[in-house]
Design a protein around this nucleic acid. Sequence first.
DNA 1: ACCTGAACACCGTTCAAGT
DNA 2: ACCTGAACACCGTTCAAGT
Lengths: 195, 195
Amino acid sequence: MALTREAVVGAAVGILREFGLADLSMRRLARDLNVQVGALYWHVSNKQELLVEVAAELLSSPALTAGTAARPPAAAATWRGDILHLGSSLHTLLLPVPDSAEVVQVARVLAPERLAPLTRMTETFTAAGLTPERAASAQSLVVNHVLGAVAEAQNRADFEITGSATDYRWALERALDGLLPPVAHDAGNGRAAGE
Amino acid sequence: MALTREAVVGAAVGILREFGLADLSMRRLARDLNVQVGALYWHVSNKQELLVEVAAELLSSPALTAGTAARPPAAAATWRGDILHLGSSLHTLLLPVPDSAEVVQVARVLAPERLAPLTRMTETFTAAGLTPERAASAQSLVVNHVLGAVAEAQNRADFEITGSATDYRWALERALDGLLPPVAHDAGNGRAAGE
DNA sequence: ACCTGAACACCGTTCAAGT
DNA sequence: ACCTGAACACCGTTCAAGT
């Protein structure tokens, strides 16, 4: 039963799920795997790379990987639905995993290309008519909002804060209102979504 | 020259500004202040409380504290301008301070009431007609976006990443388009901003 | 190729004891 | 009241040496 990279990442995900990021240390990981700390560094070059791998695994759920395969052209109104669905799937997926928003944030900074569902969201924005730069900015707005909402909800639970949780979904929909203005189908003005 | 709480916070802000969060340790702070580590704990109960203080000081700039004093009633169109101004002031203020977005995030979780400018932004949203819950959610969207943009720009610099920075301001304006729909002054329909 | 043992240079926090 | 000295229980990372 040799130690593998997958085993290391898997154990890391397990610790995160059960105990959170504070307990996810290289030494704790080694102890759980009955191995010396140094052994981990044969399979993973450092902790940051491990966290990227953990985030990638968290976002590899089928709930996020589905969709966008083949879309009938000119189904414009569904781009919004795709993004809304992606955002709320992300939210429900991360909510039960402590500190998952922080981990995804780190991964987004270090290796955004490893987080396929987030890349797909940017692509959806461009498909909806935004320029690449604006699509990146729009994705950033949406993802920051969802991750922020997850982090807030988790911390609210941790600190036993009273008061109502903020309605992340309402703000998400309003953001999409601004980012993807509805195509006007009342009069015949051919104004596109971008510009 | 007795050690004071203000001196501790001031030195912490200095380390953050010059070297970033990685170098802002209690031990480094004590060394810079020519004091034993334990001494810090007389003036500050733990590191988290210190970070809240650091964030509060970062956001105590006059650029963020101004405005909203007395507004002529029914100057509805300027709520948007106020928020836009607050958001971009926050951005330009934090951008030169390494890891400042992370520090503010921590403070926002631990003691949001200590960050007056952010509270003021929520108040502006309610003044613009949103319910308290929605105002909180709208503020969260905007602040997460600005902090995310700051963090991204700083990391882009750290890792010498090529490619254009995302246009945070465009997305911010689109978000406000959705959050604060313009009052319709073409026909005489009295639809309010909320709902 | 893969892992151990042991070191290096750090952390945050606590607390008796001093002044 | 305020600070020192010293400890406790940790960190991430490296690397010669073993197998």
